[in-house]
Design a protein around this nucleic acid. Structure first.
Lengths: 241, 241
DNA sequence: AAAGTTATTGACTTAAAGTCAAACTTCGAC
DNA sequence: GTCGAAGTTTGACTTTAAGTCAATAACTTT
């Protein structure tokens, strides 16, 4: 590969990031339906044809944006796994990471759900589909790691559930809580901060699994402060309460 | 109102149901993006203009279909509340209803999520928005009723959580489990029946709330058989295992 | 049965995704 | 430096589908 080619590749990658930056802004603001490729082309100062040199379809663009987000999510999760503390505290660090992520990408889960619908997914580039799957798996493995550690240390009793089922349960509750917290039309109003509810609900679930120590014996605020200080100092939304 | 007018109103309502029947079939099969109003008009043998005499937009049609579904869901939930048994068994009946509903409307929650996105919701008729909200609230109240009963009888300890927060937690876990169970691309494979996982996860959560009796002391299969026999005999998917 | 009223229609307008032949740019040979 | 070939970018064009509304048909009243 010539020297020139290397420069071209880099420029191409930079342009792709630029497109995704603008697409992401539009998606976060107005959603997928309102993402307009003529406008997007104008805003990045390239033609619509050029957009299609990078992406197969409009859906492909949205998947690329989502994949960039989930990479960040997986990075946050892997940092959380490294938190020094009991297994339950490390699990709390995952929750903290999840909350931090939700602050940066408030509608991520709605988008994620849309992505996974068949009619959407099939319109994206297979390579991008694969990349997205890989990052999802990284998130999964981070939680899985903590679960197996907790079983080994005896914090989490060996029950009739497999570690995979336990991860599935935790992920379900977390994602469900995120989604419920964001849908204001639900006909039920929970006054408290919707994001706090994610941790609260996961805590109930972990108690139900018999994960030691039970949430009533844990000073959640103190742990949160440590997590904030030691691994997620960039979480400026976090208020010590 | 004249006699003629009454007949006309009835015919109009019948036509609306006909449109929704066809729209529903198309939505369940190919999703919202692939719902085509020219095709829909052909299939119901009315013109496209007539569709717009009933519905404001394509989104409005989807909301109407979803509302018809959630009416059924609320009906199922209210039947579940009437199940004769302990509070925890009645809660299980709600779970059973939820599973039954998921069999009839497999993608309901994905659609529901899409509906609630701002860009979608704003395009629907305010009256229909309201109707949808009312039915959501009926589902909420059904669960709320069982929760307050359980607190009164002492099955569920008065903790630091309000009944509303408990309902929120249950709904989050149930919906999250439904959604996770249906998204095959999640990078994690749970071998078991995804619908069984909903009950399993909710059971863990209820245990975490300290809801008596704990799931280990309950013969879930026996209760399920009773629920099936006594209140949901139409649930043909249910296999006594 | 004519005039008036209401209901229905489908050709038309509009918006936006996706395409591709033509214009432009870069590169290497001489 | 110039030329032609190879590669890159473009935006006018095609296509598809939502949403509109003037024309037409059906029904009602007098």
């Amino acid at each position: 590969m010539s020297v020139t080619q290397a420069r071209k590749d880099r420029e191409r990658a930079e342009r792709e990031e630029l497109i995704l930056d603008h697409a992401q802004r539009s998606l976060l603001k107005d959603g997928f339906q309102n993402l307009n490729l003529d406008d997007l082309a104008k805003s990045v100062e390239y033609s619509k044809g050029t957009l299609y040199l990078h992406f197969k379809t409009k859906e492909d663009i949205a998947l690329a944006v989502a994949t960039r987000a989930i990479v960040e999510r997986a990075d946050l999760f892997e940092r959380a796994v490294g938190f020094k503390g009991t297994s339950r505290e490390r699990m709390r660090a995952i929750g903290f990471a999840s909350l931090h992520f939700a602050h940066v990408y408030p509608d991520y889960f709605s988008v994620e759900l849309m992505l996974k619908s068949h009619s959407f997914w099939e319109k994206a580039d297979p390579l991008r589909q694969q990349a997205h799957g890989m990052e999802g798996a990284r998130c999964f493995r981070a939680v899985h790691r903590i679960v197996t550690d907790a079983i080994e240390t005896g914090d989490l009793p060996r029950g009739h559930l497999s570690p995979e089922e336990i991860v599935f349960a935790i992920a379900s509750t977390a994602i469900g809580s995120h989604i419920m917290g964001r849908s204001s039309h639900a006909g039920m109003f929970v006054t408290q901060d919707p994001l706090k509810m994610v941790c609260q609900n996961v805590d109930i679930l972990l108690d139900g699994l018999g994960w030691k120590p039970p949430s009533k014996d844990m000073d959640a605020n103190a742990v949160d402060r440590r997590i904030h200080r030691e691994i997620f100092p960039e979480a400026t939304w976090f208020k010590t309460s």
